[in-house]
Design a protein around this nucleic acid. Structure first.
Lengths: 224, 224
DNA sequence: ACCTGAACACCGTTCAAGT
DNA sequence: ACCTGAACACCGTTCAAGT
């Protein structure tokens, strides 16, 4: 009657879809978008590359599962908010921060716009739109405008981050870009020169992102 | 004194950066995002793959040049508009339609958020924001909100298109998605079930995109 | 100066063979 | 049932050799 199996020694447990997805997330976080290869993943999991195909169909399914896991976690960590306006900002920032921390998720969301991750974000956004008082077709328009902005802004922010070596600091980078843009042709690029280049060094991406949410919410409010 | 060179017979002219970029655009349009390979491009241009590297540094530069060319053409085709509001809608739709016709451009814009193409779109957007009467920091916020929405919405629309085989028609696809979504758990996805799934079959992506622009413009108007 | 195409160091995916 | 790892059909990029 004694148990035949021992509590796992130092060796790895069996492969499973969950372990593979978790390892894929680690690999993507460590090495970036191009860091995920079946060979690298197999090495991390101390197995052969073919073994992975027993548990997942292909790379696209793996990426999709990894992105879903990140988005699910981010959405489940949202705390109850005081009012719909605050709830909307929390959803937006939750997605923004998740993609900032896992930049590869952004590309995945735009590759799979009908997938579970996007669906869950849209559900959250939509509920707040309803709570704000939108009716009929305006609900759909308001929710999809916010969804587009939230995903678009999160992706663009994450792309910025990926361009910088960890060695260059952000302020120096923005100064360099700002200087370059102030030398653009004043006839061709007046707005970039006089407005964007000037404000670039002191602006806060996350605060600007949130200001955009507020602008859209203000627009929604005018049609209630 | 007679000219030694003949007018080009039937054979190809010499390679050049422009010819390579033009062929790359054709290839991307015909075969999609993954269709661009140096071997395929070399075959189209009747040359060796290594020859391309004499004119362009690498694939990333090639993609970037191709996307710039598409965006430049789209922006240069914009007709003068009656007022800043209409001009803004024209810019937004110009980008939207260009990325709809060349879906691979979307991914490139989010890969190079400080590149020439994005810069030119932002310049156009910014000028209209100024013409609408925004001042100081509000100009920057309004322009970057619109930029984010325009690029994000164009990318998401293009991603939708890529998912469909040309064989399936759009209405059937939307019906299928709508039906599937109406069967989601009513406790977990009330908004998707009751609002999104219901409106999906009859909605018009391009009109919804434009409605989002109007929503943001309404938001901007409240702070003037 | 410009072009050729083989070679190098990778990929994702498949599949016979093992346990 | 699950795992192994060689094999296949690709990639981007380099570079000696040609013109």
């Amino acid at each position: 009657m004694a148990k035949a199996t021992r509590p796992s020694e130092r060796r790895e447990e069996a492969l499973s879809r969950e372990r593979i997805v978790a390892a894929a997330i680690e690999l993507l976080d460590d090495e970036g978008d191009n860091g995920l290869t079946f060979r690298g993943l197999a090495t991390r999991l101390a197995t052969g590359s073919g073994a992975l195909y027993w548990h997942i169909a292909n790379k696209s399914e793996l990426l999709s599962a990894a992105a879903d896991a990140v988005v699910d976690r981010a959405l489940s960590e949202l705390r109850p908010a005081r009012d719909p306006r605050e709830a909307m900002r929390d959803v937006a920032l939750g997605v923004y921060d998740a993609i900032d921390a896992h930049p590869w998720v952004g590309a995945q969301l735009s590759r799979a716009p009908w997938g579970t991750a996007v669906l869950r974000i849209l559900e959250r956004v939509g509920r707040q739109v309803q709570a704000l008082g939108a009716r009929g077709g305006a609900q759909f328009t308001a929710a999809s405008t916010l969804l587009t902005y939230i995903i678009g802004g999160s992706i663009q922010n994450a792309a910025n981050g990926r361009l910088l070596d960890p060695s260059v600091n952000r302020a120096d980078f923005l100064d360099t870009v700002s200087t370059r843009w102030q030398q653009l042709d004043p006839n061709e690029y007046p707005f970039i020169r006089n407005v964007v280049a000037v404000q670039l060094p002191t602006h806060d991406d996350r605060a600007e992102f949130l200001a955009g949410i507020d602008l859209i919410l203000a627009g929604i409010a005018t049609s209630l």
